[in-house]
Simulated assay, not measured.
Amino acid sequence: MANAKYRIKRRKNALKELNELVERHSNLLIIHYSCESFYNIKDGRTPRITSIAVRYFNTGQTISFSIHKVAEKQGKLNSIEDHYNELEKSMLDEFYQFVSTHINFKWIHWNMRDINFGFEAINHRYSVLGGTPSIIHDNNKYDLARKMVDIYGTYIKEHPRFEKLIEKNNITKKDFLSGAAEAEAFENKEFVKLHQSTLRKVDILHIIVERIIENNLETDATLREIYGFTPQGLYELMKENWGYNLLIFLLGAVLSGVVGYIITFLLM
Rank of each mutant, 00 (worst) to 15 (best):
M1W: 04
M1K: 01
M1D: 11
N3E: 15
A4W: 06
K5E: 15
Y6S: 13
R7Y: 05
R7K: 15
R10H: 12
A14R: 03
L15Y: 04
L21G: 10
R24D: 15
H25G: 14
I41L: 05
K42L: 15
D43E: 15
R45S: 14
R45W: 07
T46R: 00
T50E: 00
S51H: 01
I52V: 11
V54R: 03
Q61G: 02
T62G: 02
S64Q: 04
F65H: 01
S66D: 05
I67A: 03
I67E: 00
H68L: 00
K69D: 15
K73M: 08
Q74H: 11
G75A: 07
K76W: 12
I80K: 00
H83V: 00
K89V: 07
S90H: 07
L92D: 02
E94M: 09
F95P: 10
Y96S: 10
Y96C: 06
I103N: 12
W107H: 09
H109G: 06
H109D: 10
I115G: 00
N116H: 08
H124Q: 11
Y126Q: 07
V128H: 00
D143F: 02
R146T: 13
Y152H: 07
I156N: 03
P160K: 02
N169I: 14
N170K: 08
K174D: 14
G179E: 01
E182D: 12
A183H: 00
E184G: 03
K189A: 12
E190P: 02
E190C: 02
K193H: 08
K193N: 14
L194N: 07
R200K: 15
L205F: 01
R211M: 13
R211I: 03
I213N: 07
E214H: 11
L217R: 03
L217E: 09
E218W: 03
T219A: 10
T219K: 08
A221F: 04
T230M: 06
L237H: 13
M238S: 12
L247Q: 06
I248R: 11
F249L: 15
G252K: 01
G252A: 10
A253N: 12
A253M: 13
V259N: 02
L266S: 14
